[in-house]
């Protein structure tokens, strides 16, 4: 436990030094604030609070931005240290390899949490003070923040897996971008293409549901865009959400699985690396 705290603390300090933390906070705050203040104009006509509208638009953008930020934080966590030569010394200390992986992961994940709390949380408070929030929309907003953290952590874990599998930092960067494209852009396009091509409706709804749940960004979308009545109406996902009928606990568990699985694979791979 002590080693985990030391390693996570070191990662956070490094993040603060490199101004990573500051950059992510600024980015997330700018995004949330601009959507909160400028994007809530249509609220009058559909009788939704500006905060509900912000959740819908912020969730749509978070799906693109947060995985990218997470992958950028994580892709060189292991291979970068290997390439710079700092890993060699670290592994001669009394720390287990799983502790190195998990400790660094905790540090990066906490950096993301802090950025979300300050960036998204700050925008939420601004909406509260401008009278654009009620209790229901606050719940949706907090769910958005929590699921964003899980989504980001899942992509940090994926970034770690990349970092443990390749031998060069540049390769890791390339693979990380490819992963982002796959999960965030291509996967849904592919799924959409599949549904369009299936004119005879031979694909069972269950299979489509499974395919949706096999992508963390889709799980995040389902959580946030069908979570509450107001938001799902705005997102045009009300029907879809009702039809799919996913249990919130299952969605959270799956997202947690998307954190644990790549992280577990990273540890398994990292244990076997000979320096």
């Amino acid at each position: 436990m002590r080693a985990l705290v030391i390693l996570a603390g070191n990662e956070i300090r490094d993040g603060l030094r490199n101004r990573w933390v500051a950059a992510i906070i600024l980015l997330l705050a700018a995004l949330a604030l601009s959507l909160a203040l400028l994007g809530s104009a249509p609220s009058g006509t559909v009788q939704a609070t500006p905060m509900s509208i912000t959740v819908a638009s912020l969730a749509s953008l978070t799906v693109y931005l947060l995985p990218l930020i997470a992958l950028m934080l994580a892709f060189d966590a292991l291979v970068g240290e290997l390439e710079r030569g700092t890993l060699l010394l670290l592994l001669t200390y009394p720390v287990a390899r799983w502790q190195v992986v998990v400790g660094k992961f905790l540090g990066h994940s906490l950096i993301l949490l802090a950025a979300l709390l300050v960036g998204y949380g700050g925008a939420g408070l601004v909406l509260q003070f401008t009278g654009g929030a009620d209790a229901e929309s606050w719940i949706a907003y907090l769910v958005l923040m929590a699921s964003s953290w899980l989504l980001g952590s899942a992509f940090i874990a994926l970034g770690y897996l990349v970092s443990a599998l390749v031998r060069e930092r540049a390769t890791a960067a390339g693979v990380a971008v490819a992963l982002w494209l796959l999960f965030v852009v291509l996967y849904d396009l592919g799924l959409l293409g599949l549904l369009l091509a299936d004119t005879q409706q031979r694909l069972s709804p269950d299979l489509v549901a499974v395919l949706l749940l096999a992508n963390p960004t889709d799980i995040f979308r389902i959580i946030n865009l069908t979570g509450t009545e107001a938001v799902s109406l705005l997102a045009g996902m009300a029907e879809a959400g009702r039809a799919a009928g996913f249990q919130p606990a299952l969605l959270v568990a799956l997202l947690l699985g998307w954190v644990a699985l790549p992280l577990g694979l990273t540890v398994a791979r990292f244990q076997r690396i000979e320096l």
Partner: peptide, 14 residues
Amino acid sequence: LLGKGLGADIGFLP
């Protein structure tokens, strides 16, 4: 000790 961390009684300078 591979994968489990080394004992504290060794000092190494690479």
